[in-house]
Nucleic acid binder design. Structure first.
Lengths: 205, 205
DNA sequence: ATTATCTATAGATCTATAGATAATGC
DNA sequence: ATTATCTATAGATCTATAGATAATGC
């Protein structure tokens, strides 16, 4: 066997692992890690419970796999923030991407929120080793923009928190938003307009 | 027995129910409803498990009691928003109160967030019957302020969401905030300054 | 030959109750 | 007499495995 013990997965392997992860994302994101059961995941995936455990080492393995997949996706928009771009446009684009992610990947947002809410037992190492440097780097970029007078004075750290909070709110608190807006079909557009206006007013020098 | 079957609780009743609710708030807010166990609550309360069930009908009874206590506290700042006050000052005062609550009652914030995240199985009726009318009423107040030119044009609904999101973020995502700010002791003050500036810039006509 | 799936169940964990005993208030 | 507490355990739920059988790929 040439490279290590790496066996390339068969077609059915890929398919079933995918089915399981998708089902598990549903279940974990709505019930939390402890609240989720293998029965629910198996049912949602359309596979038997022992068959789930044929593809994964256990409940925790599935959860960890989901979180690892998520973290890359989750930090990607921030990575993309371009120091050489036009300051305000870069920030507004970032806000817009985060808001679209809240609409398109609400389960991922809730999975992450649930994990942090519970004290981040599985992602604290990632926060410290990966997100922290990225956060500092992008705070420095924003500070540069402020110093050059391209943005109004703002605390970069709390600006980023405000962006995360306002955008993810639409995924994490979707049930509440839905009730209070009476299922308004325009809510995503209205939210986008509101956040665009808010951060524009905040940051225009 | 004069009024109904209401027996006034003894001193020890009050004390132990209080101990249990405080312990349960700790446990439910960090582990979620399903993740919490009576063992953990009993241990945290310093009572035996059957003794917990002597004071409450069961795990769900404790959870419901906590949520009911919470909901009143939680909507109080919004109730207080005074239509006859000075528009911007009223909003900024509301923001400040919400932020202080995130600092002083983080467990309550997380309990509520967890409940909404899981689809609000126990508080959806409350959202529709109590919060909804209050939300509409206060949106109308803000709209009046905008119409009178006392506030810059803003979507009242999404303004309120932004206030909730940005303030509660410091409680619900405390672990992440703490890591990224490296335990900065000034973070609450900095957050207050940032949010004050942000909503001032957004809302000043 | 290896991969995939199923039935049956072991073993752990949790909520809740039964039933006895101790403490407290008239 | 009533309130409060304890030990022991029933009964339900869940994760995970054992062991047998079916399907698939050389």
């Amino acid at each position: 066997m040439p490279d290590g013990d790496v066996k390339k997965p068969s077609r059915i392997q890929r398919r079933n692992r995918g089915l399981i992860l998708d089902a598990a994302l549903d279940v974990f994101s709505t019930h939390g890690y402890r609240g989720a059961t293998l029965d629910q995941i198996a049912e949602a995936a359309g596979l038997s419970k022992p068959n789930i455990l044929y593809y994964f080492d256990g409940k925790e393995d599935i959860h960890v796999t989901l979180l690892n997949q998520l973290l890359g996706t989750w930090q990607d928009p921030l990575v993309t923030l371009n120091p050489d771009g036009e300051a305000l446009a870069e920030i507004l684009c970032y806000v817009r991407r985060k808001l679209d992610m809240a609409r398109d990947l609400p389960r991922e947002s809730r999975l992450f929120a649930g994990e942090i809410l519970r004290g981040a037992p599985r992602v604290t190492p990632y926060l410290a080793s990966d997100l922290q440097p990225l956060f500092d780097e992008k705070c420095a970029v924003i500070k540069t923009w402020v110093d050059k007078g391209q943005l109004a004075p703002v605390d970069p750290r709390h600006l980023i928190f405000s962006i995360w909070a306002t955008t993810q709110h639409y995924a994490d608190f979707a049930v509440q938003v839905k009730v209070l807006l009476k299922d308004d079909p325009d809510s995503h557009k209205d939210a986008a307009r509101h956040l665009d206006a808010m951060f524009t007013r905040l940051l225009t020098p």
